[in-house]
Design a binder for these strands. Structure first.
Lengths: 135, 135
DNA sequence: TTCCTTGCAAATCGTTTGCATAATG
DNA sequence: CATTATGCAAACGATTTGCAAGGAA
Protein backbone atom coordinates (compact mmCIF):
# COMPACT_ATOMS: atom_id res chain seq x y z
CA UNK A 1 0.00 0.00 0.00
CA UNK A 2 2.81 2.37 0.85
CA UNK A 3 4.10 4.04 -2.24
CA UNK A 4 7.75 3.69 -3.09
CA UNK A 5 9.76 5.90 -5.31
CA UNK A 6 10.73 4.76 -8.76
CA UNK A 7 12.82 6.36 -11.43
CA UNK A 8 10.52 4.95 -14.10
CA UNK A 9 7.46 6.62 -12.63
CA UNK A 10 9.30 9.92 -12.40
CA UNK A 11 10.35 9.76 -16.02
CA UNK A 12 6.85 8.90 -17.17
CA UNK A 13 5.30 11.79 -15.31
CA UNK A 14 8.01 14.17 -16.37
CA UNK A 15 7.60 13.19 -19.99
CA UNK A 16 3.87 13.71 -19.76
CA UNK A 17 4.28 17.13 -18.19
CA UNK A 18 6.45 18.20 -21.06
CA UNK A 19 3.80 17.50 -23.66
CA UNK A 20 0.76 19.49 -24.53
CA UNK A 21 -0.66 16.86 -26.85
CA UNK A 22 -2.17 13.86 -25.11
CA UNK A 23 -0.02 10.81 -25.69
CA UNK A 24 -1.15 7.21 -25.55
CA UNK A 25 0.63 4.59 -23.48
CA UNK A 26 2.80 3.38 -26.30
CA UNK A 27 3.85 6.88 -27.26
CA UNK A 28 4.92 7.36 -23.67
CA UNK A 29 6.74 4.05 -23.84
CA UNK A 30 8.47 4.85 -27.11
CA UNK A 31 9.78 8.14 -25.79
CA UNK A 32 10.81 7.17 -22.30
CA UNK A 33 12.38 4.09 -23.78
CA UNK A 34 14.91 6.28 -25.58
CA UNK A 35 16.40 7.59 -22.36
CA UNK A 36 15.75 4.45 -20.37
CA UNK A 37 16.02 1.48 -22.73
CA UNK A 38 15.26 -1.09 -20.05
CA UNK A 39 11.77 0.15 -19.26
CA UNK A 40 8.95 -2.17 -20.23
CA UNK A 41 5.53 -1.46 -21.66
CA UNK A 42 3.94 -3.11 -18.65
CA UNK A 43 5.64 -0.67 -16.33
CA UNK A 44 4.40 2.23 -18.41
CA UNK A 45 0.83 0.95 -18.21
CA UNK A 46 1.12 0.22 -14.52
CA UNK A 47 2.41 3.67 -13.72
CA UNK A 48 -0.01 5.52 -15.95
CA UNK A 49 -2.87 3.75 -14.19
CA UNK A 50 -1.35 4.41 -10.80
CA UNK A 51 -0.81 8.09 -11.51
CA UNK A 52 -4.33 8.38 -12.83
CA UNK A 53 -5.71 6.72 -9.70
CA UNK A 54 -3.71 9.11 -7.56
CA UNK A 55 -5.15 11.97 -9.54
CA UNK A 56 -1.75 13.17 -10.66
CA UNK A 57 -2.66 12.75 -14.29
CA UNK A 58 -5.88 12.31 -16.22
CA UNK A 59 -6.93 9.39 -18.36
CA UNK A 60 -8.87 10.46 -21.44
CA UNK A 61 -11.21 8.17 -23.29
CA UNK A 62 -11.99 9.86 -26.54
CA UNK A 63 -13.82 7.14 -28.39
CA UNK A 64 -10.91 6.09 -30.55
CA UNK A 65 -10.40 2.92 -28.55
CA UNK A 66 -7.11 4.03 -27.03
CA UNK A 67 -6.51 5.75 -23.74
CA UNK A 68 -4.80 9.12 -23.83
CA UNK A 69 -3.09 10.71 -20.86
CA UNK A 70 -2.89 14.30 -19.78
CA UNK A 71 -0.64 15.77 -17.10
CA UNK A 72 -2.92 18.79 -16.87
CA UNK A 73 -5.46 17.77 -14.25
CA UNK A 74 -7.28 21.09 -14.14
CA UNK A 75 -10.83 20.87 -15.44
CA UNK A 76 -10.90 21.55 -19.14
CA UNK A 77 -12.35 20.12 -22.32
CA UNK A 78 -10.81 18.50 -25.34
CA UNK A 79 -11.24 18.63 -29.05
CA UNK A 80 -10.32 15.69 -31.22
CA UNK A 81 -9.72 16.20 -34.92
CA UNK A 82 -11.61 13.76 -37.10
CA UNK A 83 -8.96 14.12 -39.81
CA UNK A 84 -5.63 13.77 -38.06
CA UNK A 85 -6.69 12.51 -34.66
CA UNK A 86 -4.87 15.18 -32.74
CA UNK A 87 -6.22 16.10 -29.32
CA UNK A 88 -6.31 19.77 -28.43
CA UNK A 89 -7.17 21.59 -25.20
CA UNK A 90 -10.07 23.97 -25.47
CA UNK A 91 -10.22 27.35 -23.82
CA UNK A 92 -13.89 27.97 -23.35
CA UNK A 93 -16.51 29.29 -20.98
CA UNK A 94 -17.90 26.95 -18.39
CA UNK A 95 -20.55 24.49 -19.38
CA UNK A 96 -20.84 22.93 -15.95
CA UNK A 97 -24.53 23.76 -15.88
CA UNK A 98 -25.25 20.86 -18.21
CA UNK A 99 -25.00 18.51 -15.25
CA UNK A 100 -27.87 20.37 -13.56
CA UNK A 101 -29.85 20.47 -16.78
CA UNK A 102 -29.46 16.73 -17.16
CA UNK A 103 -30.42 16.09 -13.55
CA UNK A 104 -33.53 18.26 -13.55
CA UNK A 105 -35.90 15.45 -14.42
CA UNK A 106 -33.87 12.41 -13.43
CA UNK A 107 -34.57 9.85 -10.78
CA UNK A 108 -30.99 9.24 -9.66
CA UNK A 109 -28.03 11.38 -8.79
CA UNK A 110 -25.83 12.82 -11.49
CA UNK A 111 -22.27 13.22 -10.33
CA UNK A 112 -20.76 14.63 -13.49
CA UNK A 113 -20.35 14.39 -17.20
CA UNK A 114 -17.83 13.48 -19.84
CA UNK A 115 -17.71 15.70 -22.89
CA UNK A 116 -15.42 16.11 -25.80
CA UNK A 117 -15.78 17.92 -29.09
CA UNK A 118 -14.86 16.80 -32.55
CA UNK A 119 -14.53 18.30 -36.00
CA UNK A 120 -11.67 19.59 -38.12
CA UNK A 121 -8.71 21.25 -36.46
CA UNK A 122 -7.16 24.48 -37.65
CA UNK A 123 -4.38 22.75 -39.54
CA UNK A 124 -6.58 20.28 -41.32
CA UNK A 125 -9.08 23.00 -42.23
CA UNK A 126 -6.32 24.90 -44.03
CA UNK A 127 -5.10 21.82 -45.83
CA UNK A 128 -8.61 21.06 -47.02
CA UNK A 129 -9.32 24.50 -48.41
CA UNK A 130 -5.87 24.59 -50.03
CA UNK A 131 -6.49 21.26 -51.74
CA UNK A 132 -9.89 22.52 -52.81
CA UNK A 133 -8.74 25.75 -54.42
CA UNK A 134 -5.70 24.08 -55.94
CA UNK A 135 -7.85 22.13 -58.31
CA UNK B 1 -21.08 -2.46 -52.44
CA UNK B 2 -24.73 -3.22 -53.14
CA UNK B 3 -26.45 -4.27 -49.99
CA UNK B 4 -28.10 -7.65 -49.90
CA UNK B 5 -30.77 -8.81 -47.57
CA UNK B 6 -29.93 -11.08 -44.67
CA UNK B 7 -32.09 -12.69 -42.06
CA UNK B 8 -29.34 -12.26 -39.49
CA UNK B 9 -29.18 -8.53 -40.00
CA UNK B 10 -32.94 -8.26 -39.68
CA UNK B 11 -32.98 -10.17 -36.43
CA UNK B 12 -30.20 -8.10 -34.96
CA UNK B 13 -31.93 -4.86 -35.76
CA UNK B 14 -35.27 -6.13 -34.60
CA UNK B 15 -33.81 -7.28 -31.32
CA UNK B 16 -32.20 -3.92 -30.78
CA UNK B 17 -35.42 -2.08 -31.50
CA UNK B 18 -37.17 -4.08 -28.82
CA UNK B 19 -34.81 -2.98 -26.10
CA UNK B 20 -34.63 0.29 -24.26
CA UNK B 21 -31.40 -0.55 -22.46
CA UNK B 22 -28.30 -0.38 -24.62
CA UNK B 23 -26.92 -3.85 -25.20
CA UNK B 24 -23.36 -4.75 -26.05
CA UNK B 25 -22.45 -6.98 -28.97
CA UNK B 26 -22.32 -10.14 -26.93
CA UNK B 27 -25.68 -9.45 -25.32
CA UNK B 28 -27.09 -9.10 -28.81
CA UNK B 29 -25.38 -12.30 -29.77
CA UNK B 30 -26.61 -14.21 -26.72
CA UNK B 31 -30.20 -13.22 -27.39
CA UNK B 32 -30.38 -13.59 -31.14
CA UNK B 33 -28.55 -16.87 -30.76
CA UNK B 34 -31.55 -18.31 -28.91
CA UNK B 35 -33.84 -17.96 -31.92
CA UNK B 36 -31.11 -18.47 -34.47
CA UNK B 37 -28.53 -20.87 -33.01
CA UNK B 38 -26.32 -20.81 -36.09
CA UNK B 39 -25.49 -17.14 -35.95
CA UNK B 40 -21.90 -16.30 -35.11
CA UNK B 41 -20.42 -13.56 -33.01
CA UNK B 42 -18.52 -12.27 -36.03
CA UNK B 43 -21.74 -11.76 -37.93
CA UNK B 44 -23.19 -9.83 -35.03
CA UNK B 45 -20.19 -7.54 -34.93
CA UNK B 46 -20.19 -7.11 -38.69
CA UNK B 47 -23.84 -6.19 -38.80
CA UNK B 48 -23.75 -3.89 -35.83
CA UNK B 49 -20.92 -2.00 -37.48
CA UNK B 50 -22.70 -1.97 -40.79
CA UNK B 51 -25.95 -0.72 -39.30
CA UNK B 52 -24.07 1.93 -37.38
CA UNK B 53 -22.31 3.07 -40.55
CA UNK B 54 -25.65 3.24 -42.35
CA UNK B 55 -26.98 5.34 -39.49
CA UNK B 56 -29.71 2.86 -38.69
CA UNK B 57 -28.42 2.39 -35.17
CA UNK B 58 -26.04 4.27 -32.90
CA UNK B 59 -22.80 3.05 -31.43
CA UNK B 60 -22.22 4.33 -27.92
CA UNK B 61 -18.79 4.53 -26.37
CA UNK B 62 -19.31 5.17 -22.73
CA UNK B 63 -15.83 4.75 -21.38
CA UNK B 64 -16.36 1.26 -20.01
CA UNK B 65 -14.29 -0.27 -22.78
CA UNK B 66 -17.25 -1.96 -24.46
CA UNK B 67 -19.39 -0.65 -27.26
CA UNK B 68 -23.11 -0.33 -26.61
CA UNK B 69 -25.73 -0.08 -29.33
CA UNK B 70 -28.92 1.87 -29.50
CA UNK B 71 -31.69 1.54 -32.06
CA UNK B 72 -32.95 5.00 -31.13
CA UNK B 73 -31.05 7.28 -33.47
CA UNK B 74 -32.80 10.46 -32.45
CA UNK B 75 -30.50 12.89 -30.68
CA UNK B 76 -30.55 12.28 -26.96
CA UNK B 77 -28.15 11.88 -24.08
CA UNK B 78 -27.26 8.97 -21.86
CA UNK B 79 -26.63 8.40 -18.21
CA UNK B 80 -24.43 5.55 -17.06
CA UNK B 81 -24.68 4.32 -13.49
CA UNK B 82 -21.32 4.01 -11.78
CA UNK B 83 -22.73 1.31 -9.49
CA UNK B 84 -24.55 -1.09 -11.74
CA UNK B 85 -23.38 0.04 -15.17
CA UNK B 86 -26.85 0.44 -16.58
CA UNK B 87 -27.31 2.91 -19.39
CA UNK B 88 -30.38 5.12 -19.26
CA UNK B 89 -31.83 7.61 -21.73
CA UNK B 90 -32.13 11.13 -20.40
CA UNK B 91 -35.04 13.42 -21.07
CA UNK B 92 -33.58 16.86 -20.78
CA UNK B 93 -33.53 20.31 -22.26
CA UNK B 94 -31.22 20.96 -25.16
CA UNK B 95 -27.57 21.61 -24.45
CA UNK B 96 -26.64 21.96 -28.11
CA UNK B 97 -25.28 25.43 -27.41
CA UNK B 98 -22.17 23.91 -25.88
CA UNK B 99 -20.83 23.30 -29.36
CA UNK B 100 -21.01 27.02 -30.05
CA UNK B 101 -19.50 27.83 -26.68
CA UNK B 102 -16.61 25.49 -27.41
CA UNK B 103 -16.08 26.94 -30.88
CA UNK B 104 -16.13 30.56 -29.85
CA UNK B 105 -12.37 30.84 -29.46
CA UNK B 106 -11.18 27.91 -31.51
CA UNK B 107 -9.08 27.87 -34.62
CA UNK B 108 -10.76 24.91 -36.36
CA UNK B 109 -14.30 23.82 -37.03
CA UNK B 110 -16.30 22.04 -34.37
CA UNK B 111 -18.79 19.64 -35.85
CA UNK B 112 -20.33 18.30 -32.69
CA UNK B 113 -19.78 16.85 -29.27
CA UNK B 114 -20.04 13.62 -27.37
CA UNK B 115 -21.49 13.84 -23.89
CA UNK B 116 -22.67 11.38 -21.35
CA UNK B 117 -23.49 11.71 -17.69
CA UNK B 118 -22.59 9.46 -14.81
CA UNK B 119 -23.55 9.03 -11.18
CA UNK B 120 -25.92 6.79 -9.25
CA UNK B 121 -29.14 5.67 -10.85
CA UNK B 122 -32.51 5.73 -9.09
CA UNK B 123 -32.39 2.08 -8.16
CA UNK B 124 -28.88 2.12 -6.79
CA UNK B 125 -29.61 5.30 -4.83
CA UNK B 126 -32.45 3.55 -3.04
CA UNK B 127 -30.37 0.48 -2.33
CA UNK B 128 -27.65 2.62 -0.86
CA UNK B 129 -29.88 4.58 1.49
CA UNK B 130 -31.64 1.38 2.53
CA UNK B 131 -28.34 -0.28 3.37
CA UNK B 132 -27.33 2.83 5.23
CA UNK B 133 -30.39 3.08 7.45
CA UNK B 134 -30.45 -0.68 8.00
CA UNK B 135 -27.27 -0.49 9.99
C1' DT C 1 -23.99 -16.61 -62.03
C1' DT C 2 -22.39 -12.74 -59.60
C1' DC C 3 -20.93 -11.09 -55.47
C1' DC C 4 -22.64 -10.09 -50.88
C1' DT C 5 -23.00 -12.48 -46.43
C1' DT C 6 -22.08 -16.06 -43.32
C1' DG C 7 -19.76 -19.29 -39.92
C1' DC C 8 -15.66 -20.50 -38.14
C1' DA C 9 -11.28 -19.86 -36.38
C1' DA C 10 -7.26 -17.42 -36.24
C1' DA C 11 -5.42 -12.89 -35.74
C1' DT C 12 -5.09 -8.17 -33.86
C1' DC C 13 -4.89 -4.57 -30.58
C1' DG C 14 -4.75 -2.35 -26.28
C1' DT C 15 -4.21 -3.51 -21.75
C1' DT C 16 -3.57 -6.49 -17.63
C1' DT C 17 -1.35 -9.90 -14.88
C1' DG C 18 1.74 -13.73 -12.71
C1' DC C 19 6.10 -14.46 -11.40
C1' DA C 20 10.90 -14.25 -10.15
C1' DT C 21 14.19 -10.51 -9.51
C1' DA C 22 15.67 -5.79 -8.43
C1' DA C 23 15.18 -1.57 -5.99
C1' DT C 24 13.38 1.31 -2.14
C1' DG C 25 12.66 2.74 2.70
C1' DC D 1 14.50 -6.85 6.16
C1' DA D 2 9.92 -6.07 4.60
C1' DT D 3 7.69 -4.57 0.66
C1' DT D 4 6.85 -2.29 -3.43
C1' DA D 5 8.25 -1.90 -8.28
C1' DT D 6 10.20 -3.91 -12.40
C1' DG D 7 10.96 -6.67 -16.75
C1' DC D 8 9.38 -10.20 -19.27
C1' DA D 9 6.17 -12.95 -21.33
C1' DA D 10 1.94 -15.01 -21.20
C1' DA D 11 -2.98 -14.06 -20.70
C1' DC D 12 -7.04 -11.32 -21.68
C1' DG D 13 -11.28 -9.32 -23.57
C1' DA D 14 -13.29 -6.95 -27.23
C1' DT D 15 -13.28 -6.61 -31.92
C1' DT D 16 -11.66 -7.62 -36.66
C1' DT D 17 -10.42 -10.40 -40.49
C1' DG D 18 -9.22 -14.29 -44.03
C1' DC D 19 -11.26 -17.81 -46.17
C1' DA D 20 -14.18 -21.30 -48.09
C1' DA D 21 -19.04 -22.21 -48.33
C1' DG D 22 -23.93 -20.48 -48.45
C1' DG D 23 -27.59 -17.33 -49.99
C1' DA D 24 -29.70 -13.28 -52.29
C1' DA D 25 -30.49 -10.68 -56.67
Amino acid sequence: MALKHSKQRDMIKEFLMGRKDHPTADVVYANVHIQYPNISLGTVYRNLSLLADLGEIKRLRLGDGVDHFDADTSPHYHFICSECGSVIDLKMNSIETITDIAGADFDGQIAGHVTYFYGTCGNCSKVQSAAHSAH
